[in-house]
Design a binder for these strands. Structure first.
Lengths: 217, 217
DNA sequence: AGCCCATGACAGGTTTTTCCTGACATTGCG
DNA sequence: CGCAATGTCAGGAAAAACCTGTCATGGGCT
């Protein structure tokens, strides 16, 4: 049996090396390229044309979603598994729309990655069990995912929510984002509306759940 | 030569397994315990009393800082290396103050972890080069640093600061503590005075540093 | 092409919250 | 006993947040 050829894209070399070590322990997979940025990731995927590319959702220069899209455009044959810390089901939709075939949480069990790889290799789609149920309830087949989710946050909306969760006032946020306070208020209220957050405490909780409360950037 | 005994604490089993695989490739280290939460981490550290514990900064039930403190209290012999994605130097002080001997970024090179382990094993302190320079400027040797300690917080003051850090309004806090808003305001201002916190963002940072904001679920 | 609507960007005015400046009772400690 | 720290609260001023609109732009869809 020919080995499953895999490329890895993840900033955080420690994590990268870790997954590499993990995969090398599996006899049926063969590593054919690693990268730590979106740009280099795209390059190695095109050059190596692996069976499967495992991509971190958050990369320094572009999101994993963007990389997924670009990689598939240039190299439609690859199957892409997105690896992420985000448990928010809001992410799953754009990821799948971008054409990824797998969505795996970093906090899921280690052998899930191997399972995901095998499943995706066979042409199926793998979703992490922890979110698959949530996501598939509304839309069994197509990922229309209507329902309680008032939509995904735009870039600005997420920026503002992050800063709010970190305790900054609207004024401070306005300063940091270089827009007016009023604009900040708009983003905040739109974002709160979408996610059903009513108080500042809700936003903080949301931020904690998304791992925002640690890195002011 | 006796092997270096190491315990690992990291939520994200994929990452955990990865680092495990990494370390198993090094002949001089021996893995003696893994955990994915602060509570179990504390337990395995106490039970296994490893030479070194590698701890992720953000854990579901408590912060890595809190775990560091607790682990050292019960088991002063262990040397702790904190592993994190956060490059903000604001985290390094509390980490070192808590008694950790190493501070390593996940995005630093893979063999840095081994280097860090060897260095810390010898009794030295390892700081990731990327932030070491920034951090060592202010406090070259001893991390007495503690900033401006205007005294210890009283019970009520700490209660209020915690709630503020979690994003509650004075009114909500008043409700929760069953005192008047005015009383809450007093505690808050006294506490802020003592610790030199001027904005809500300062309070949130203070809370993060003290592990008050780790996943309330 | 034309339309819709999500997004980015603001403003005015009202409502809430927070901040500043006290105040007073209680309690432990030198 | 006096005194400092703490717990408790008020009034009024200042700041922040919130609500309701506006307007432009750029995709997408029909």
């Amino acid at each position: 049996m020919t080995p499953i050829r895999i490329s890895l894209v993840d900033d955080h070399p420690v994590v990268l090396a870790g997954i590499r070590a993990l995969l090398q322990a599996a006899p049926e997979v063969e590593l054919v390229g690693e990268a730590s940025t979106g740009a280099t990731g795209l390059k190695i995927i095109c050059e190596c044309s692996p069976d499967i590319a495992v991509i971190d959702l958050s990369l320094p220069d572009m999101s994993g979603i963007e990389l997924t899209r670009k990689a598939l455009k240039r190299c439609p044959g690859v199957k892409i598994i997105v690896l992420t810390v985000h448990e928010d089901r809001a992410y799953i939709h754009p990821v799948l729309e971008a054409g990824a075939r797998g969505y795996l949480l970093k906090r899921s069990a280690a052998d899930e990655l191997l399972r995901a790889i095998r499943i995706v290799k066979q042409g199926d789609t793998y979703l992490d069990p922890a979110i698959a149920e949530k996501a598939s309830m509304a839309a069994p087949h197509s990922y229309a995912v209507a329902g309680n989710d008032g939509g995904e946050l735009s870039r600005r909306e997420e920026d503002v929510l992050k800063l709010v969760a970190q305790g900054l006032s609207n004024k401070q946020i306005a300063g940091q984002l270089e827009v007016s306070i009023k604009t900040v208020e708009t983003y905040k209220s739109r974002a709160s509306e979408k996610k059903g957050l009513r108080s500042r405490a809700d936003i903080v909780r949301y931020g904690v759940q998304h791992g925002w409360l640690a890195a002011p950037n």
